[in-house]
Amino acid sequence: MTRHIFKRLLPHPMLTLLLVVVWCLLNNTIGPGAIVFGAILGLVIPAVTAPYWPDRPSVPQPWGMLVYIFIVLWDIIVANVVVARIILFKSNADMKSAWVRIPLDLRKPEAITILAGTITLTPGTVSADLSSDGTELLVHALHAPDPDAVRDEIKSRYERRLKELFE
């Protein structure tokens, strides 16, 4: 019973928390006024929009997600330097762009979305499309003499971690 009421009041607890944090950041203050008004928004907006968003996406372990975010941030910095070197010092004739096909082990839409976003943010690769049955990801690599190596690295470095987090 209490669980039911809780679910009615807070259909998306993480969204409520996010709204409070975003409101405090927008105001650029962390005072009681901002927190109370943020909490009001955090209660009203999820309740009003709940009919459009019936399923609660499962939130993976926050700690593992934090580790994943830091790994990705580090990769973004390292790979940006690599891509800047390619752009500035490699002639167009030497550039070996390639399409890479990645068979997915992930099945949850949230996990695939995060994987595709990660692939795009780490420079050198852009996720371009998904196959119509959602089991293959199409990735374009800027400079990949060996496309299979790109596929194996994405699968072992990101997809394996996401699979542990989500499934």
Binding site: N80, V83, I87, H140
Partner: peptide
């Protein structure tokens, strides 16, 4: 400033449309 500039240089320099997509979307965000 350097990475923002590199993003736009890549946008101008690279030759195929898909290759051009790489430079600005990431260099500019960083």
């Amino acid at each position: 400033a350097f990475f923002t500039l590199v993003g736009s240089v890549g946008l101008l320099k690279l030759k195929s449309p898909m290759a051009r997509l790489h430079a600005p979307t990431k260099a500019s965000t960083l």
